[in-house]
């Protein structure tokens, strides 16, 4: 029998069930849920507290988050984020599915193979995406999986609309890309 850890890919159903059970584990052991962008926000907030305590003092952000029990700290969510990096590193090393991609093939086909252009778009895309996630209170993990499984209205409306918006833009700029995936 093949060792499943050395396989490059698992059935999406198995992965989905695994993530579902992992959220039971997170709720049962830490009373927390799988969420990514809250920690990106906390990293930025802690940076502001250190670099510019004066502006931090007049920023309502800290009071609002503290009231919701989400004050910036070094804890479970930071370790979750580091863990995701380590877990993907481990999985890809075990299967040899390593990547050194600078310009993905589909991007290169549509927008050319300039690394600078791809990196600029990746940086800007990441920034806009997470700004949106933090305004709405979550991302594909925090809203798309954890919030929806708790049947939250904010999460269901967010993830459906975000998906529609992303599909719309993908079709607007690269419909012909359908022949390349």
């Amino acid at each position: 029998m093949t060792n499943p850890f050395t396989l490059k890919s698992w059935s999406p159903y198995a992965v989905g069930i695994g993530i579902g059970i992992l959220s039971w584990f997170a709720f049962a052991t830490a009373d927390k849920h799988l969420a990514i962008t809250l920690q990106y926000e906390h990293i930025a907030a802690m940076a502001q507290m250190v670099l510019s305590p004066g502006t931090a003092a007049t920023n309502r952000y800290y009071a609002v988050r503290a009231q919701a029990g989400l004050e910036p700290k070094i804890g479970w969510y930071l370790m979750l984020l580091l863990g995701v990096f380590i877990g993907a590193l481990l999985s890809s090393c075990l299967s040899g599915d390593r990547s050194r991609i600078t310009v993905p093939a589909l991007w290169g086909w549509r927008f050319g193979d300039s690394t600078a252009r791809r990196f600029a778009a990746a940086f800007a895309g990441g920034a806009v995406m997470v700004l949106g996630a933090r305004i709405a209170g979550g991302c594909t993990s925090g809203h798309g999986i954890s919030g929806t499984l708790q049947l939250a209205v904010q999460s269901w409306t967010f993830i459906v609309l975000a998906f529609v918006a992303a599909v719309g833009i993908a079709f607007l700029f690269g419909k012909e890309g359908r022949n390349h995936v």
């Binding site: 778009a121 806009v128 997470v130 949106g132 996630a133 918006a165």
Partner: peptide, 20 residues
């Protein structure tokens, strides 16, 4: 939710990876 979802969708389409 509305503002966030629009920005999120646009950024996701550009970057091609979600935050996690």
């Amino acid at each position: 939710m509305l503002i966030g979802a629009m920005l999120f969708g646009a950024g996701l389409a550009l970057l091609g990876y979600c935050p996690g």
